[in-house]
Design a protein around this nucleic acid. Structure first.
Lengths: 231, 231
DNA sequence: AAAATACAATGATAAATATCAATATATTAT
DNA sequence: ATAATATATTGATATTTATCATTGTATTTT
């Protein structure tokens, strides 16, 4: 694992979020005082739904899965997050509990900042407050889109959409290759694992994708987009 | 229709939200300058998804339906709102568009406040800003709950849950009576109209509910709660 | 009141999706 | 490497849910 130097101060951190540039020195100090950075191995839980939300999380390295723990041990994946992302759930300013679980899928680094420090900075800095609200609203837009997809599209459309999401927003490489476990694909598309496997097989049989282990290659993203919109 | 006097100033309005008590006189003036109050008849659209979000809406009288316009003319009802509610969609501070449609179900009054006035007040008043963010987070919690329900529960559970929601949060009377069109019940539970009718019939046959026209009487809320959790 | 329109209900059927069981394949730990 | 464990795949089947067509019942408009 690549060794990253833990910077003396948030102000100098190469992994800081654009919105943190809005802070002045004093506000940076408030944030910096309580911050701590932790590395997680793949599969490790960063925080779990139901526990107290004492910190907000900034993902600085790696890849995480964010999901709702639902009924009968079924999960619903809200999204995957890549650096650099601020992870603040809806427990902030309300019940101060985590409303979703976050686990690392790759070697992942996260910085934790005390929620009180964040509240204080929001109070001191109007622009930061607006950015915070803006971020939450962007998430809500994303969730609305998924709300419609998961309740109104058939399985083919949902899988196609999920593959494009993974390609465009999560793996983002020139190679049209995404990497996901079948159960995770099922939890992302609100279907059974077996169904997700079957849809993948159909897409493979039509040469729209190729499958090699956990790696899925999108051969025809245009066709996938079509399946997603019609399917 | 009952005549309501349009107060000279928001500050004196009997229908103002608790969070507006945080404002000082100057901030009240900012809000008051642009406000305008409009009455809507049942069925009228208050604002429509996709249009520019120039104002935030405060529901002061009546009942509204808030829904996502989805695929192939299918709708997904997010929630019903009763006075006094602040309606600010996720377009605020982002693309300034409406991301859902709101229509009146009863005679409804709404006050409109310019988004720029709200932004200004948020900047000037920390506590107001925090309340705003808190409100959005509460909505997100509600949406997460529904996300799981709609994707993980069967039709019986979803209908039972919807009836309890209508009773507890929307109609709130001592009488366990709720009033909803079958298509709306379907749009609220993400199923076809025919399926919603069939589930209602089953519940009626088991005497868990009684049906008289659009009026549904919940005879056994305990049983509904049980169906909702297990169903 | 009659006509027009919207909404509700029902049955028959088809389509979508989940479940269960079994086997295969990969991955990790010893 | 071998065993143990986790994940993937497949087939058969049952369940869930939607669609279509039709009829009934309200509600509104003329």
């Amino acid at each position: 694992m690549e060794e990253r130097k833990n910077p003396k101060h948030c102000k100098d951190c190469v992994s800081r979020l654009p919105m943190f540039n809005l802070l002045n020195d004093e506000q940076y100090d408030i944030v910096n005082q309580t911050r701590c950075k932790v590395w997680f191995r793949p599969g490790e839980t960063i925080f779990k739904q139901g526990t107290a939300m004492t910190h907000v999380t900034i993902l600085t390295e790696g890849l995480v899965k964010i999901y709702l723990e639902g009924i009968d041990n079924r999960n619903l994946i809200l999204n995957f997050a890549r650096p650099i992302s601020l992870i603040v759930g809806p427990g902030f300013l309300t019940d101060y509990k985590h409303h979703f679980t976050t686990i690392a899928l790759e070697e992942t680094a996260a910085c934790f900042i005390d929620v009180n420090a964040i509240s204080e900075v929001i109070k001191q800095n109007k622009e930061f407050a607006l950015e915070m609200l803006k971020g939450v609203n962007e998430h809500t837009q994303f969730n609305f889109k998924r709300f419609v997809e998961l309740t109104q599209k058939g399985m083919h459309g949902r899988i196609a959409e999920a593959l494009l999401y993974l390609h465009n927003d999560v793996f983002k490489s020139e190679k049209t290759e995404v990497n996901i476990k079948r159960q995770d694909l099922a939890d992302l598309t609100a279907m059974s694992k077996e169904s997700s496997i079957r849809i993948l097989k159909e897409l493979k049989d039509e040469n729209i994708i190729s499958v090699e282990g956990n790696s899925i290659i999108l051969n025809d993203t245009a066709k996938l987009a079509q399946i997603s919109s019609k399917g």
